[in-house]
Design a binder for these strands. Structure first.
Lengths: 234, 234
DNA sequence: TCACCTATTAACGTATACGATAGGTAATAC
DNA sequence: GTATTACCTATCGTATACGTTAATAGGTGA
């Protein structure tokens, strides 16, 4: 599940079964996204276990999941290694996000949703606008995330949504890092609203095209920034 | 490998880097794809462990991976449950495959590959043709798979390829099952070759369109078949 | 000084142990 | 006959134990 950091800090309680493995997964993942574990360096299983007050068993279970999500690799005698994000990785991630999100947009528009159905998108736009006025980039990023994840959720394709969320998480650190490096996303909100309107109008092709343009612009900016600032490993 | 392996050198190894957990993962997955484990029924962890001659530890590790790949769910006191494939699931899977494979095609064509580079595609086409002449549907399915997987591999986007492979596996049972139910894929080969030619010509938009049409036709056929034959759970 | 070999040890992968508990079963009440 | 409850057992989740193996350091010879 994607997480713009501490949107809901310890909201992960009240789960049905309170399994340590899940807790371990969530907490380690949070630390990776928050950059508490710096990409590139390794943490031994026993260290993680001591750190979370557990045995290695649930830790290993968590690591298997994190590895398959593409956040870490587990190297036999070096523990968990947080994967750095190369420009190449960012390109891959954006290609996937664009492809799937554009598809999601097309399907959503085709379904001709009511305004009621897409309030999450509208609210996310509002939140982005408000955040920008306040110069609160963190809040803007959260709203942006809400927009994108709501969009793929509304597509109705659960698998598609899950995949987008996974790659979204993979690129979370990069987004946070570049947040202050890129020009304020002033026309971003306008573009988002245009997409929403096209969806409401049931214009599948149009909304898809608008969204694709929007996302490709973002992708170019992001990759350029990363390369420009020499953030060869994030 | 486990305990007894010293006195009795099993052919199955634990030599060097070969870990039991990986073996367990591969073998259980194979059984699911081969329909040895029927969708819907459950297998307890201990049964799996005894079956593979391992302890529960590597089994659990394998199950975590299989669960995240969308092949099974692990229900606390009912072990591993093989997920049935509903028509709805097939639609989701095809939406994702089409979206990503079309993207892959576009990127590949844009790169203007040499004929040398795309021999896997050409060979897969040849193999499909040969198999059809021999009425060997299994061989045709294998060649078809090779075509699709080669295509996404050639896109150069490793993540994209991995995702397509994952959903491909999820739908494997359905493809095998409908193999004899659908009309012989006679024009399929022609369509594949048309895509290859468009890629060779560097026609990004054209190849993408051709491929999309091809895949959407397949999707419609497949979903219709599943619904028609009342295979509500595969 | 450096290459190479050996010994030590630390980390891993797997096995086993164990307490907790969900779910089934049988007994009982209605 | 049906529903309810209490008990019992099987299965799970986690902890711990154990043998294996790779990394490293230290020693030896050139």
């Amino acid at each position: 599940m994607p997480t713009v950091s501490k949107s809901r800090p310890e909201a992960t309680v009240a789960r049905g079964g309170e399994r340590s493995a899940q807790t371990a997964y969530a907490r380690i993942k949070q630390r990776i996204l928050d950059n508490d574990y710096v990409p590139g360096d390794s943490v031994l299983e026993q260290v993680l276990a001591d750190d979370l007050g557990l045995s290695r068993t649930p830790i290993r279970e968590a690591l298997v999941r994190l590895e398959q999500e593409g956040l870490v690799t587990v190297v036999p005698r070096h523990g968990m290694r947080v994967l750095p994000l190369l420009p190449r990785d960012m390109r891959e991630i954006y290609e996937i996000m664009i492809s799937l999100e554009v598809t999601a947009t097309r399907f959503l528009a085709q379904r001709r949703p009511t305004r009621e159905e897409i309030v999450p998108l509208i609210e996310a736009c509002d939140a982005m606008e408000t955040a920008l006025e306040r110069d609160d980039l963190i809040a803007w990023a959260r709203a942006d995330e809400r927009f994108h994840l709501s969009l793929v959720e509304l597509s109705g394709n659960k698998r598609l949504a899950a995949i987008v969320m996974a790659v979204w998480d993979q690129s979370h650190r990069a987004r946070m890092f570049t947040l202050r490096l890129r020009p304020k996303p002033v026309d971003s909100t306008r573009e988002h609203r245009a997409v929403v309107n096209a969806i409401l109008a049931g214009d599948a092709a149009g909304s898809a095209a608008l969204y694709q343009a929007h996302r490709e612009k973002a992708a170019v900016t992001m990759v350029a920034l990363i390369e420009q600032f020499g953030l060869t490993r994030l």
